[in-house]
């Protein structure tokens, strides 16, 4: 006997993502889901971003890591509210985990929540967390072939931050062609915003900061 089922395998996650979306809408919060490989510089970008948004946009952070609270400690130096989630082996954050973390953030005092997902270029892009947009981060040290090798996240992201561009000026020998990456990413995702920057020198932060401020003020109801 064969029966038709047609049920979404991720319906449980979708249901929590919907609940999270409702919380963000109720509190008029822009939620961003930051995804990259480990070591691309997500936390360094966040620390510099939070400091540059002070007085303009109130930011809260949800940190996803397999182990430790090392990244949450770095975020705490900015005095921004932060909640650490340890997945203990899990390769991505789930909407249910984010839902629990939201209970620990002062939602009425925030304009933006950035979720720093577990360092992984594949799995996190499959699980919706209720975010308004995905932010992909790629560092020049990783090589310019990543958009071709891992199209999922680059096809789904609204913004791509290309980090560690200070390595070019430092004369480092790096196989990374910015134009090639931009062309490859736009083949699947024409509307993506691309901001090359350096979390070390803060080069390129102006445009990324402007995008964040504009998005926090003008984001549509989720």
């Amino acid at each position: 006997m064969k029966i038709k089922v047609v049920k979404n395998i991720l319906s449980e996650n979708e249901s929590y993502a919907k609940k999270n979306r409702a919380i963000f809408a109720k509190n008029n919060i822009l939620c961003l889901n930051m995804i990259s490989s480990p070591g691309s510089g997500k936390t360094a970008i966040l620390v510099k971003t939070i400091n540059r948004l002070k007085g303009k946009v109130r930011v809260g952070i949800i940190e996803g890591d397999i182990q430790t609270d090392l990244d949450a400690r770095r975020i705490r130096t900015t005095r921004a509210p932060v909640v650490q989630i340890n997945t203990e082996g899990g390769c991505h954050l789930s909407a249910a985990q984010v839902h629990s973390a939201l209970k620990l953030l002062p939602l009425d005092k925030l304009d933006v929540i950035i979720i720093e997902n577990v360092g992984n270029l594949v799995c996190p892009s499959v699980f919706e967390l209720g975010e308004s947009a995905k932010i992909a981060v790629l560092s020049v040290a990783e090589g310019d072939d990543k958009p071709a090798k891992y199209p999922e996240i680059f096809a789904r992201a609204k913004v791509l931050l290309i980090n560690k561009i200070d390595l070019f000026a430092a004369g480092a020998s790096i196989d990374f062609n910015l134009k090639k990456v931009e062309k490859e990413v736009r083949r699947l995702n024409k509307k993506i915003e691309i901001f090359p920057l350096s979390a070390r020198t803060c080069q390129g932060f102006k445009n990324w900061r402007k995008w964040l401020i504009d998005s926090a003020r003008n984001h549509p109801a989720q």
Partner: peptide
Amino acid sequence: ADFQLLPDAPLILEEIEFESE
């Protein structure tokens, strides 16, 4: 080359076959 990427197909359990009576 000018196109819009449509949302990816969701993960769906389509059908199940059970042991016959």
